[in-house]
Amino acid sequence: MQRTELVIFDCDGVLVDSEPLAAAVLAEALRELGFAADEAFVYRHFLGKSVATMRRIFAEELRWELPADFVDGLLPRLQRRFRDELRAIDGMAGLIRGLNVPCCVASSSSPDRLHLALELAGLLPLVTPHVFSATMVPRGKPFPDLFLLAAERMGAAPGRCVVVEDSEAGVQAGCAAGMRVIGFTGGAHAASPAHRAMLEAAGASAIAASAAELPALLGLGEQ
């Protein structure tokens, strides 16, 4: 195993337990448009993917055109839900404080959503300014662009980066970037054996069910 130079965390479902909240808000908004959707549909099609990718999936695969102002209308609803219910994943703050290598965040979420989620969870001071959004690259996950950008900006070789991801698209992106990927199932949406199997099939080299399991899997103490 090469020496780890950088740990790259996804945000939603890894640092903050936001995926059930976001899925509920999105499914509700889609139903209001007359599109039959529930949280399971949202997870299946959009977990870990950017807004641009979501629009492409609707247009090309689902043959449904989202209104131009759909995302703008969605954000305030999501922000209200976050302010009422969002919490950090247990143990992540302590894990980040204890790392002996640099870390950053690379997420499919928009910068505004990222900033709010990290701020509400009390994690923003621990990762600022090293927060990267899929809006900064041409292609979102499962393409490697975002992780490669994060590594470049942080001055780390891709082969010496470790990614912590909760989604199939995120694991695929990390693997495509030539990075070691640890699948994370500590979020409320990811606890099932099926989710773990999905992450393993996507290429995760190990699975952590909690923040407490990550230090040993990161292997930083051996450096």
Rank of each mutant, 00 (worst) to 15 (best):
P102G: 12
H45F: 13
F132I: 05
G140P: 06
F132L: 09
V42A: 08
Q2I: 09
D12P: 01
A216Y: 08
P144E: 00
F184I: 03
P144Q: 00
L95D: 00
L21E: 09
A106W: 00
S133R: 05
R113Y: 02
V42D: 00
D10M: 05
R139M: 05
A206M: 12
V105L: 13
C104P: 04
A52M: 12
A121F: 01
G91M: 09
L199Q: 11
I207W: 09
V25L: 08
L146D: 01
E213D: 15
Q223A: 15
I8T: 06
A194E: 15
A59C: 01
R180V: 05
V71T: 09
A40G: 09
A204H: 06
L26C: 13
L199A: 07
V131P: 01
L75F: 13
S108T: 09
S167Y: 01
E28Y: 05
V131L: 14
A37N: 06
R44T: 14
A27F: 05
L116H: 01
L99C: 12
M198S: 10
F70I: 07
V181G: 04
V14F: 11
H195M: 10
T128M: 13
P76Q: 14
L214I: 06
M1G: 15
G98M: 12
A208C: 08
G122S: 07
L30Q: 06
R196P: 00
G203M: 06
M179Q: 05
P67D: 12
D145H: 03
A216E: 15
A93L: 11
D84I: 05
L220P: 12
W64F: 15
V25W: 01
S107T: 15
A211K: 04
A211I: 06
A121K: 02
R63Y: 01
G159H: 12
L62R: 09
E5L: 09
D90K: 14
G91W: 08
R55V: 07
A88I: 03
F70Q: 10
A157V: 10
L6E: 02
C103Q: 12
C11T: 04
R31M: 03
L116Y: 02
G48K: 01
F35C: 00
E213K: 02
V16A: 13
A177Y: 02
R3A: 15
L120D: 04
P125I: 09
M1A: 15
A150K: 00
A208S: 03
F143R: 08
